[in-house]
Write a protein that binds this DNA or RNA. Structure first.
Lengths: 368, 368
DNA sequence: CTGTTAGCGCTTTCAA
DNA sequence: TTGAAAGCGCTAACAG
């Protein structure tokens, strides 16, 4: 490791400056500036953070010297004192690439980002670290976070509490113990299923995103609410989810996931005449694959999405889907989080946003 | 500020535990655990970081007590010692919401995220803080960063050097002083312009994303290279960018930006028969607006994009565009950054990735 | 295997 | 207006 500069307190500044121009440099610290300026660390600190408390000459001299020596305050050391990092996190249970493979997530982040902008914060995406989301949660240098894709009983939530980190959950089951933002998944799902049933479809494949539990019966949170909605609509039509024609599959919530699931869809017996995707991204993939296989959508296959991404109405055919206010969801969650971070209130709150069925061109009356 | 627990060193542990159950709690620290377990701080530290160096009973006892008291190591304090934050940043000159309004950025982040995943890092999006990107750069708790949308002579680069933070630039002018990743913007631009010219178009609007300089002559970096490419193709056809039919506009690089620019496009004299957008997102917006105004694309207006986003071939009409390997761009940049972070080498390197013109359905022979 | 002792680099009373 | 000194909570030689 080449030659190191000894850290003797009384070290000559000239030595510092000399070595600073070399390859292996010791970072310039507040002490170096203080010494060089002939003032205390306090003064240097003031010069940067509360210049008003110093005579303007002193302040200026300190700042000048700092600039000369190329000094930049160490933000970590600062954080240790202030207990603020000026960043919030968004915790995701999958890796970053997967998370952003669904435009939904980018849109959510836009909403969160809007609030970050207002508050002067950065945004840290916190995925599992060496496979462990817990480890990542322990290590994250943040003032608070938004938790996505997890349930309220997740260990991550425990760690967040242990770390005393304020947090807001998105799409988790409402509970008195956590602050969270959701949408009316039940109603959105119910209406979309109802739409297909009204069009005469009886052979319907429901394509969910990966739940990591696999069993429809064990779904919780968003997935649970949506399936409750499907069941409700089916029931109104005298059907159940166990019916011969109703199939439930899972895939990654991305265009690629939709493409992948299409093949499995085509193996089903009876072959579905309609697909109910739990994410627009999946719907895109299904449509793309269907068209690649020469299938006409909606002529031979109706497809419904969920989300209403920005590009969903521009697809060919324009996608019938359930619109949820994604950006607002992120924004509201971030606003709640900022309240918590700033200690504005402590009572857990729950916000549920509305959804709306957007009937467009990817669904058609059966046989019509 | 309710009652505070005094911070007397000799404080009884029972007091701590009692107050820990109250509202205003002092965080449990390594000292509390050490005291309670009757060991030194060192031992506690080892229990968490190198359990092997402790007898398993001791380690277990410490961990148990820690869990009981709800102790979580303070990652900031840890970082101050280790000089690692386990996060890298991606610096963006606009706010987060704007950055992600272009799917290009999400795709870039996917590439970066892939490497983060491999390296066990989180990813911090660092936008300007109260309008100052410099301030944000000073404050970011990161081990290194990827810089987007900035030139090599930006002040941010100076601060990064001052902070001794390794960084990699994306789409900046190559220079011997910085490590960066670009694509062959010149060639992509040249080919796309050539394509339109071959189709007989002579009234062409070039829609650039915002440069914050405004003057085409003052463009640098990516924009500069692309315009050099346009000029080159024009020259081959005996034209110049100052020609009567050639117009240059700017707008935000997003769908909304494209929609916004469409109106301005329609005011131009002569009215363009083709649009060359510097981002697919802009192209989407232009097409959407054109269709909303009853214009046929490509019948009455040809549109070319740049990027080839995931959804670009699914649009109606499928977008003719210049494909650049966005995700790979992010990935390569992140890989270079990790090399720097881990001190694997110091020489600035420059990677230029190839592009490819994808001729699809949004362009048509003039009058054909 | 375990503890002592210095820090890491900055902020912040409190006193001068 | 300025400085001394005590932390912030943890890690890491080094010694035993």
């Amino acid at each position: 490791m080449a030659r190191f500069v000894s850290k003797t307190p009384g070290q000559e500044l000239s030595t510092l400056v000399d070595t600073a121009t070399e390859q292996m440099q010791r970072r310039v610290t507040i002490n170096d500036i203080a010494k060089q300026a002939g003032v205390s660390k306090t003064a240097v600190s003031f010069a940067f953070n509360m210049p008003g408390r110093l005579s303007s000459e002193t302040a200026q001299r300190i700042l000048d010297i700092a600039r000369q020596l190329g000094y930049a305050p160490n933000p970590i050391a600062r954080s240790l004192n202030t207990r603020r990092t000026n960043a919030i996190g968004v915790i995701v249970p999958q890796d970053i690439s997967d998370a952003f493979s669904n435009p939904f997530f980018a849109q959510l982040v836009r909403g969160i980002g809007h609030v970050c902008n207002l508050e002067g914060m950065s945004l840290m995406v916190v995925p599992p670290m060496r496979g462990s989301l817990l480890e990542a949660t322990y290590a994250a240098l943040i003032d608070g976070c938004i938790v996505t894709g997890l349930e309220t009983d997740d260990e991550v939530v425990r760690v967040l509490r242990q770390r005393n980190l304020p947090f807001v959950m998105i799409d988790a089951d409402a509970s008195d113990h956590v602050t969270c933002v959701t949408v009316n998944d039940f109603e959105g799902a119910r209406q979309s299923m109802q739409h297909l049933l009204k069009l005469g479809h009886r052979d319907i494949a429901i394509v969910s995103f990966e739940s990591f539990s696999g069993k429809v019966e064990q779904y919780t949170g968003t997935l649970r609410h949506r399936f409750d909605g499907y069941r409700s609509a089916l029931k109104d039509a005298g059907l159940t989810i166990q019916n011969h024609g109703i199939h439930c599959l899972e895939t990654k919530c991305s265009l690629a996931g939709g493409v992948e699931v299409f093949n499995r869809l085509m193996q089903l017996v009876p072959r579905p005449t309609a697909v109910l995707a739990l994410g627009d991204a999946i719907a895109f993939g299904v449509i793309e694959a269907a068209q690649a296989h020469g299938l006409n959508v909606p002529g031979q296959l109706s497809v419904v999405g969920f989300d209403d991404l920005e590009s969903s109405h521009m697809m060919r055919p324009a996608l019938t889907t359930v619109r949820q206010p994604i950006k607002e969801k992120g924004q509201r969650a971030a606003e709640l989080l900022m309240d918590l971070v700033h200690g504005r209130f402590g009572l857990p709150r729950h916000i549920m946003l509305p959804v709306e069925l957007m009937v467009r061109k990817s669904t058609l009356r059966l046989g019509g």
